[in-house]
Nucleic acid binder design. Structure first.
Lengths: 209, 209
DNA sequence: TTAATTTTTTGCGAAGTGGTACAAAATGAC
DNA sequence: GTCATTTTGTACCACTTCGCAAAAAATTAA
C-alpha cells in the first residue's frame, strides 16, 4: 500500500492517521465548530497541506468518514449476516456499534455522522443528503436481515419487516444520541439488549428464549 | 400579560415573537452555525438589544427552547396521560411530536434540542447537560406511563417497563433524526404507528387489536 | 420643562473564519 | 552536480465571529 517511492519531497504525514485525527476533532466538536485550525493542529499538517491532500473542510470530513466507515463496516455486517443466531447477531451488531461510538480513550462520542452533522443537515442540502444516505444504508441492511429472518422462519411469517427494521434503526439512532449525551457504555449495552429482546418478541421470534 | 406601562422607552419588539424567530434560526442552521447576526436579522433586534433582553447566545437558545417546550408540552402530556386507550395515547403522543418537528411552513426541522445541539454536546459540558436533561425528561414521562400501564393491566404484568420506555424514547430520537434528514411527514407517521404497534405487542398488550 | 429611565442605534475591537499565493525545502531522475 | 517535482512553511486575504461602550431616542414622572 505505502510502496510508492514517488518523486518530490516526501510527505511528512500519514494520510490515514491524519484523517483519523481529523475525524476525532469533528466528533468531539461537531462539524461547524471544528475549524481548519483545529484540524491543522490535530493532524499536524499546515492548512495548505490539508487542502492539497484532502480538499476543503467538507471534503476532509467526507474522506474521514469514509475511512471510518470502511474500517468499522466489516465487523457490523459480519455480525448481522454471518452469525447463525438472529438474536446473537443483532446483539453483536449493536455491540459493534456501541464500541464504535466510543473513542479509544473511552469518550462517548457517538456516531461520526448522525451525531455530528445533524445540526447542519437542515440548512445545507449537501450535508442533508449525506445524513439521509447514512440513515438509508442502515435501514437497508436491517431490512435485508429481517427479510432473511422471515424466509428462514426465525421470526413470524407475517412479521412487519419494514417496521421491525425501522425499530432497530431507531435503536441505533438512540444509541448515537445517548452516547453524545454522556451515557456510560454499560447503560447503552443494557438498552441495546432490552431493545433487541423486545423487538424479537414483537417479531414473533421462533425461540423467544 | 402585556399590561405594563413601564417607564422608559418602549421596546420595539415582542419578546415571545423574538424568541420564536430565534429558535427558528437555531433549528434551521444548527447551534454553532447560527450567528448573532442571523439572530439579529431574524428577530429584527440589534445585537445589543438581544444581549440586554436575553443574554448571550447560549442564554438566547435556552430561553427560546424553554418557551417552545412550554408551548408544546401540554398537548404531549395530555395525550400520554389523559387518553384512556394506551394505544391511542401513544399514537397521539408521537403525533404531537411529529407535528412539533415541522415548522409552520412544513419544513422538517426536527427537535430544537435533540437535532440542534447534538453536535456540540460532546465538547461543551453545559450543552451536554442540556441534551442529557432533555433526554431524561422524555425517559421519565414514558417510564411513568408504562408503569401505569402495568398497574392498570393494559400490558403484561411482567413487562419490562424501563426497556419499553427506552424503546419508545428511541422512536422519538429516530423521528427527530429522520425529520432532520428530510423524511416527509407521512412516512414519519407510518414509522411511528408501526413502532408503537410493535412495542405494544412486545409488551404483551391486553388487546393487541 | 426638566429629570429619570429604558431601549435603540451606531460603531468599534480583538479574535477567529475558510481559503490561497508564493517561496523555501526535500526528494528522485538525469 | 543540476533539474524537475512534490510537499512544507510563512504570510496574507477578505470576511465573519461574539461582545461591548457610548451616544441618541423615546417614553413616564415630577
Amino acid at each position: 500500500m505505502t510502496a510508492k517511492p514517488a518523486r518530490g519531497r516526501p510527505r511528512a504525514y500519514d494520510p490515514e492517521e491524519a484523517l483519523a485525527a481529523a475525524l476525532g476533532e469533528f466528533r468531539r466538536r461537531g462539524y461547524t465548530a471544528t475549524s481548519l485550525d483545529h484540524l491543522s493542529d490535530a493532524t499536524k499538517m499546515a492548512r495548505p497541506s490539508l487542502y492539497a491532500a484532502f480538499g476543503n473542510k467538507l471534503e476532509i470530513y467526507r474522506k474521514a468518514v469514509r475511512q471510518y466507515s470502511e474500517q468499522t463496516a466489516e465487523r457490523r455486517q459480519r455480525a448481522l449476516f454471518e452469525e447463525p443466531s438472529l438474536d446473537k447477531g443483532l446483539e453483536d451488531y449493536f455491540g459493534a456499534i456501541i464500541d464504535a461510538y466510543f473513542s479509544r480513550e473511552g469518550e462517548p462520542l457517538g456516531c461520526p455522522v448522525l451525531s455530528v452533522i445533524s445540526g447542519e443537515a437542515a440548512a445545507d442540502p449537501v450535508i442533508g443528503a449525506e445524513l439521509a444516505a447514512a440513515i438509508g444504508r442502515s435501514d437497508g441492511l436491517l431490512q435485508r436481515r429481517m427479510a432473511q429472518a422471515v424466509e428462514a422462519g426465525e421470526i413470524a411469517a407475517d412479521a412487519d419487516v419494514r417496521g421491525l427494521a425501522a425499530m432497530l434503526a431507531a435503536l441505533q439512532h438512540s444509541l448515537a444520541l445517548r452516547a453524545r449525551a454522556g451515557t456510560p457504555r454499560p447503560e447503552l449495552q443494557a438498552i441495546a439488549r432490552a431493545h433487541v429482546a423486545l423487538a424479537l418478541r414483537a417479531a414473533g421470534a421462533a425461540r423467544p428464549n
